[in-house]
Amino acid sequence: MISITVIVPTYRRPQDLARCLEALKHQTRTVNQLIVTIRDIDTETWEFLATYNPDSLPLQTTTVTVTGVVAAMNKGLSLATGDIITFTDDDAAPHPDWLERMEANFQTDEKIGAVGGRDWQYIGNRIKEEGDREDVGRLQWFGRVIGNHHFGVGKAREVDVLKGVNMGFRRNAIQGMGFDERMLGTGAQVHFELAFNLALRRRGWKIIFDPLVAVDHYPAVRFDEDKRDQFNNIAWLNAVHNETLVLLEHFSLLQRTIFIIWAFLIGTREALGLLQLFRLLPSESTLAVQKWVASVDGRIKGLQSWLTYRNVTTTKVAITK
């Protein structure tokens, strides 16, 4: 019989965590192991869990002493015993059939190493942003990463990357793997999913996005430099650095060359090149310049990190048996 582990990293959001745990209680497919990773200094969450009634949930808590989501997820990963190891955020509420549908996808093909799906984003009871997309979780050959996981529709299909709030992995597929501890950031550490998923693809495993494998996502306050919808120079630089490092490691020599040229001359709204700077100047003025400077700095630092680490094995081994 297949066993499933659910890992939930949390930090100072006990009300959100309570909603997440209640959703996990109502899964149509039983949770076999539930690991909640908690920072040692997070007194709010420890106090909440001290009186929380898990009922049928096989709740297991573990302490993390290092900042950032990567350390929390690696700690959970090191304790996971399931044949399928799933992740969601404390500010998410998985749909009742989340685990059932995820397991069903894994059973269709033994070469599937990861399964994830849509996160329906809410502000209160209102959908944050309306939209439907079939182009989801894809890395284009020259380096642009297409997300759209919160807009995903259509049939289950193969993709390049899943979103951290809604993803699960076959234990055998991630043997010897861990989340990349080189990701910059003291909290969110943007693009850690990209690093992990692309490493999995290099191993030859399939990654499946199924919009019906769904969670409701209530993006909550972050207690680090990354404030989601507000520009912060350090958070912006960190995200661009992380993406640059991951893609340079993943690409061939030719693709690296094309990616670097494209990144500095064109770029995206999240990592500006010159063309994006000129496009945003009329509407964002000095803010566009700040984003561009942070983007260039992030690209350069990402390139430096790649040059530093390209001959060194750095990914923590979290799954060893």
Results as ranks from 00 to 15, higher is better:
Pro96Thr: 15
Phe87Thr: 02
Asn74Pro: 04
Arg170Trp: 09
Arg144Ile: 13
Asp90Glu: 05
Gly76Arg: 06
Gly178Ile: 06
Val115Lys: 02
Arg157Ser: 10
Ile123Gly: 09
Gly131Leu: 11
Asp119Trp: 04
Asn74Val: 06
Met177Gln: 06
Gly117Met: 00
Leu139Gly: 13
Gly131Pro: 09
Ala173Asp: 00
Asp160Tyr: 13
Asp109His: 08
Lys163Ala: 08
Phe87Met: 00
Ala71Ile: 09
Met167Ser: 04
Ala156Gly: 04
Phe169Trp: 08
Asp132Leu: 13
Leu79Glu: 10
Thr86Ile: 00
Gly154Gln: 13
Ala71Met: 04
Val145Ala: 14
Ala104Glu: 09
Ser78Arg: 08
Ala72Leu: 10
Asp109Thr: 14
His149Lys: 11
Met177Cys: 05
Gly178Val: 01
Lys111Ile: 01
Pro96Arg: 12
Ala72Arg: 07
Glu100Ile: 12
Val161Gly: 01
Phe106Lys: 09
Asp83Met: 06
Tyr122Asp: 01
Gly147Trp: 10
Leu99Val: 06
Asp160Leu: 09
Asn172Glu: 15
Ala80Glu: 02
Val115Ala: 05
Leu139Trp: 11
Lys163Glu: 11
Lys75Asp: 02
Lys155Thr: 13
Ala71Asp: 03
Gly154Phe: 09
Arg171Lys: 15
Val145Pro: 01
Val153Ile: 15
Thr86His: 00
Ala92Gln: 00
Asp160Ala: 11
Thr81Asn: 11
Val165Gly: 01
Arg171Ser: 08
Asp91Pro: 03
Arg126Val: 13
Pro94Glu: 01
Met73Thr: 15
Phe151Ile: 07
Tyr122Glu: 00
Met102Pro: 01
Ala71Leu: 04
Glu130Lys: 13
Ile174His: 03
Ala173Glu: 02
Gly154Arg: 05
Arg170Leu: 15
Gln140His: 15
Ala104Lys: 14
Ile112Met: 04
Glu158Gln: 15
Phe151Leu: 14
Asp119Pro: 00
Phe87Arg: 02
Gly117Pro: 02
Val159Asp: 07
Ile112Asn: 00
Val153Asn: 04
Arg157Asn: 07
Arg170Ile: 05
Gly82Met: 03
Ala72Gln: 11
Phe151Ala: 07
Arg144Thr: 15
Val115Arg: 00
His150Tyr: 11
Gln175Phe: 14
Ile85Lys: 05
Gly137Lys: 09
Gly147Tyr: 12
Asn105Phe: 08
Ala80Val: 00
Ala71Gly: 02
Ile85Tyr: 02
Met167Tyr: 02
Trp98Asp: 00
Val70Tyr: 06
Lys111Gly: 07
Asn166Ser: 13
Pro96Asn: 13
Glu158His: 10
Phe151Gln: 13
Ile123Cys: 08
Ala93Thr: 10
Asn166Gly: 03
Gly137Ser: 14
Arg171His: 09
Ala114His: 06
Asn105Gly: 07
Ala104Gly: 10
Arg101Tyr: 04
His150Glu: 08
Gly124His: 07
Gln140Ala: 15
Thr81Gly: 07
Phe106His: 07
Gly131Ile: 12
Asn166Lys: 06
Asp83Tyr: 08
Phe169Met: 04
Phe106Met: 12
Gln175Thr: 12
Glu100Thr: 10
Glu158Asn: 14
